[in-house]
Design a protein around this nucleic acid. Sequence first.
DNA 1: GACGTATACCTAACAGTGTTAGGCAGGCGT
DNA 2: ACGCCTGCCTAACACTGTTAGGTATACGTC
Lengths: 191, 191
Amino acid sequence: MPDRRARRHEATRREILAAAWQLARERGLTGWSLREVADAVGMRAPSLYVYFDSKDAIYDAMFSQGYQQLLETVDAVPSAEDPRTLLRDVASAFFDFYVSDPARSQLLFLRVIPGFAPSEDSYELARRTLERLGEVLGSIGIDRPEAVDLWTAMVTGLASQQVSNDPGGDRWARLIEPSVDMFLARESPAA
Amino acid sequence: MPDRRARRHEATRREILAAAWQLARERGLTGWSLREVADAVGMRAPSLYVYFDSKDAIYDAMFSQGYQQLLETVDAVPSAEDPRTLLRDVASAFFDFYVSDPARSQLLFLRVIPGFAPSEDSYELARRTLERLGEVLGSIGIDRPEAVDLWTAMVTGLASQQVSNDPGGDRWARLIEPSVDMFLARESPAA
DNA sequence: GACGTATACCTAACAGTGTTAGGCAGGCGT
DNA sequence: ACGCCTGCCTAACACTGTTAGGTATACGTC
C-alpha cells in the first residue's frame, strides 16, 4: 500500500508541471518565473523547492514529459504496409507534434536554455524515443543511418520553418507530401 | 567633416556589440548580462544606455549585423552555370554560416528570446537577404516558391540537427551533397 | 583661446529573478 | 496519544534589467 503522502506529493508535482507548461505555451519557454508558477498553484515560490530542486529540475521534468508525449505520438501512428502511406503519416504526426507546441519543441529539440542540460534519465528517454522512430522507418526498409538522419533533418526543418516564418499557416505543412515523395524517390526507388 | 563625437559614439557602439557577440558565443544567446558586457568594455552597466535603449535594442543591432553577414556570405558564393555545383556551394555556405555560430543562428532563425521581435528596419534587412537567396536559386531555374521553401527547410534542418545532435562533428554535414542530389532529382530532373 | 553645452560616464536605487535559511503547524505512521 | 516528517510560510541573499540624478570633460562655437 503506497504512502498516501507520496501520492499527494506526486499529484502536486504534476500540478506544478501543468502550470509551467501552460505558462511556457503562453509566454515562451523561458518567459515565466517561479513566482508565477507558484501563484498558479496557490503557493509562494520557495515552496516549489519541496517538489523540485531548481528551475532547471522543472525543465528537466518537462523535457521528460515532452519525450514521453512524443513516444506516444509515434506509437499512435497506424502501421501500414505501403512505405509512402506510413512515411506520410509519421511525418505528419511529427510535424503536428512540433508545430502544436513550439515551446515544447524548443525544449526538446533545440538547446535554448543557457546552462540547462537534461539529466541522464531524461536523455536516455529521449534516446529511446528517437530509436523508436528509427524502428518505425526501418519497418518499411528505411534502415540506413544516413537515411534516417536525412529524414529527421527534413521533417524538423519543415516544422521549424513553419513555426518561425508562418505561424498558424500551412506554407510548409503543404510541403510534407512533396518532401516524402522526394525522399522516397531517393531512398526507395523501387516502390 | 562628420562630427568627431558621432564617430567615436559609433565606434563604441560597435565595441559593445563585439563584446555581446563574444559573450553570446561563449555562454549562449541569452546567457550573459549587461554587467558582463559593461565589464568587457570597461564601463558600468547603466552607461550602456548611452548607446542602446535596452538589452533588446542590443539584440536588435545583433540581429541586423547577423543578417548583414548572411547577405555577404550569400554574395560571396561564386556564380556557376551548373545547377548542382551552385546548389551545393550555396547549401554549404549556408550550412557553415549556421553551424559556425549557433547563438547567431538562434537569434536570426528561431524565436528564442521572450518578448523580443526585430525592429521594422532589421526585419526589412532580413526580408531582403532571404529574397536575395531566392534570386540565387532562381538563377539556376529554381523559382517556384514551393521549391525555395523546400530547399530552405532542408538546409536549415540539416544545419540545426548538426548543431543540436552532433556539435563539432560532421554527421549531417556529410548529408549536404546527397540532399542536393535528392532535391535536384525532383526540382530539375533534366539536369 | 575662453566659454557654454551636450555627451559620456558615474553611483544609488528599484522591482523583479532564482535560491537558501529557518520556523511553524498539522497530518501521518507508529 | 505521541512524535516526527512533510508542506508550507516569511525573510533575505545575490543577481538581473532599468531609471534617476549628478559630475567632469571634450567638443563646437564665438
